[in-house]
Each structure stands twice: as C-alpha cells, then as structure tokens.
Design a protein around this nucleic acid. Structure first.
Lengths: 201, 201
DNA sequence: GTCTATATTCTGATAGAC
DNA sequence: GTCTATCAGAATATAGAC
C-alpha cells in the first residue's frame, strides 16, 4: 500500500506531515527526504525548491479547507440549521483526520499575510453568501439592529475550530487525553448548532 | 521616550515584536538587532543566545497571558457571571494591545509541547478551580448529566480568543478593516458573557 | 530517476579593537 | 558597552556519475 505510491507522492506526504507540525521555517528539507525514504537531491529534482514544495502543499491545504465551506455557504437547497450542521460536522470530521490544519494555515498566513490571503479568499465575501442572507432573515428585527450578524458566524467558526488549535493546552488544563478530546469534539457536532440557534432567538 | 530605554530593553522590545509575528524559527537575530538599532554582537552580549532571549520573552508572555486568568478562576468573591465578564473583558483588553499573543503562544506550544506546557499549566487544572465549582452549581441537574461542563469554558475561550487568532482572515472574508474589527471585539465584551449565560439555561 | 559529493548561501555566535 | 570582522556549522540547492 505504501509501495504503490509514486516517489512524488511519498515526498509530498512526508512534506505535508512535517510542514503542518513545525511550519515552514522550522522544517528542514533533509527531514522531509528522510521521512519520505529518499535522498535530498530527489526532492529538488521533483519540486525545484523547498518553497515551491511548500506552496503546493499550502495551496492544497487551503483549498480543501475552504472548498467545503464555500459550497455550503452558497448552497441554495439547505436551510440555515442544515447549513450549521453541515459546517460543524464537516469541519470536525475533516480536522479530526488532520488536527494540525487550522493552526498551520493560520500561522503561515500570519507569517506571510499577502501571499495567501489575497489568492484564496478574494472570492469569498461573507456578505455575498446565501448563508448570510438566510441568517439575517432569521434574526429578529430588533436584534438585527443591535447585533452585527457577523458575530454569529464568528461564533460558529470559533467554537468549531478553536478547540483544535488549542488542543494540547486544553488536554493539559482539562486533564484529558487525546481520546477524550475526540469524544468531546464528537459531542460538539450536535451542541454547537444548537447553541447558535439559541443565540439567534 | 524611545531614548530613555536601556539597550537591553530596546533589544527585548524588538525581539518581542518579531518573535510574535514570525515565530522562533523564522526570526533572524540580525533582524532583531537591526530593529533594535544595535549590532548583532550586542544581542549576544546581553542574552548569550537566540534561544535564551526567546525563552525569556516566551516566559513573560505566557505569564501575563495566564496570570490574570488564574486569579479570576480562583477568586472566591465574585460569582459566575462576574467571572465571565472579567475573563472576557480582561482578555480582550489585553490582547487588543498585543493581537499576536494567542497565535504566538499556541504556535510555539505546538512546536515544542513539553518545554512550555509542563512548566506553566501544571498548577492549573480546570476541575480544581472555583470557577468550575460555581459552574456545575449553576447548571441544571438534567443538563449536567448530558453535557460536560468543560464545553462551556471551551466556548468562553473560543469565542474570546479565536477572533484574534483568525484576525487577518476575518478581516478579509468579513470585508472589514482593523478598526471595525476592534469595534466588533468591543461589542463582544458584553455579548459573550450573555451568550454563555444563555447556554447554561 | 536516483544517488554521492560538493558548491553556495545563510545564520548564530565569537574574537578582539576601541 | 559597542562595534567590525570573521568563524563554524547548518541548510538549501546543484553537478555529475550511474
């Protein structure tokens, strides 16, 4: 199964693992080569440079990270509650497989804001989404005038993503292990949409 | 005013700025020296090494980050709602001055989990705090059996800290500038405690 | 395509003059 | 205390054989 991978795939997989864990600067190309079970020269043969390899992985990570979100945000069939559930469930399920993704993306964005932000999120303005329209339609008139609807979407993302970002800290101060952490996140799949609905009332 | 600083203070301030923005590995000692307006050799004269300088700054950042929190968590005078307000208000006010702090601390923890986690948070187990006791006292019996109280504290931290961590992304997709972002965070000082209270009911 | 050996650049740290 | 010049090691990238 591992042997079915092409060399290029092996390098990319190793690179992804290490870049995600340590970030761009702390990652050594020698480390990647070693973990991929190949020689350092081969890495440059396939990807020309560390930075090009990184950019490829970064772009793919951001794509899969935003892709799902955009589709749900723009879906015309589902109602507001269904969208909440899809977003929370989708992210938790996806990130459980790669828990380092959110911190990785946000850290590297911070390191080099222009590079990535402009490329990926130019298309997505919250205010232009179906989700946003459905949201303001749902909120009561009086509440709409006193509270910016953005807050609720920020809450949705915060409660879903932050636990992964602070995972190691939470496990320490909450005195739980990795398994218990995952169980908590599993519970949150139902809880977060419920809490958000509650806030809108 | 800038000239009243000692050389040591100038180096530390420059180091803090750059470490916070770029993290340990992406920071060059030459960069720090330049921003401090001194020579590279002088940095080593005062701090011996990049790592020692970093550790000093990291420790101070974590102290001021957790210090306030621990005190509120253990305060016997205030009730639950007052604690919520103090925590949210305190953090937002503090981090508005240094918006990079949360992402910096969480990134570097990820980079080197043992180094910092064990030192700083060993004392603080959530379940041993007054806040936690007050929380389970407040939650209805039926709810207490179905929902782990940790969730509410996770929500409190998530809604408070995550916006700063995702600041640049939020400003992009929310189509707002830095000033508007701060205004939103100002609003959240009142909103977050209210939302949490609502969840407990 | 893959490797070994090597060139090149970068970066943290020190020696030594002032 | 502060600087210039320099070293030593690390890390990226390439040359060239197989």
């Amino acid at each position: 199964m591992n042997s079915k991978q092409t060399t290029e795939e092996k390098i990319k997989e190793a690179a992804k693992d290490i870049f995600m864990k340590k970030g761009y600067s702390a990652t050594k190309t020698r480390d990647i080569a070693e973990h991929a079970g190949i020689n350092l020269a081969l890495l440059n043969y396939y990807f020309r440079s560390k930075e090009k390899l990184f950019n490829q992985i970064m772009m793919e990570s951001m794509s899969s990270f935003f892709q799902g979100m955009i589709m749900v945000f723009m879906d015309k069939e589902s109602d507001l509650e269904q969208k909440f559930i899809k977003i929370v469930d989708g992210y938790i399920e996806q990130i459980k497989q790669q828990p380092d993704t959110p911190l990785f993306i946000l850290s590297e964005m911070q390191r080099n804001p222009d590079e990535f932000l402009s490329k990926m999120t130019k298309k997505l303005k919250i205010q232009d989404t179906i989700l946003y329209q459905q949201l303001i339609a749902e909120i009561g008139k009086e509440k709409l005038e006193s509270v910016n609807p953005i807050h609720f979407l920020v809450n949705l993302m915060s409660m879903t993503l932050f636990p992964f970002i602070a995972k190691s800290m939470l496990e320490h101060i909450g005195d739980i292990n990795s398994q218990q952490f995952n169980a908590l996140m599993e519970e949150r799949k139902m809880l977060i949409p419920m809490w958000i609905k509650q806030m809108l009332r």
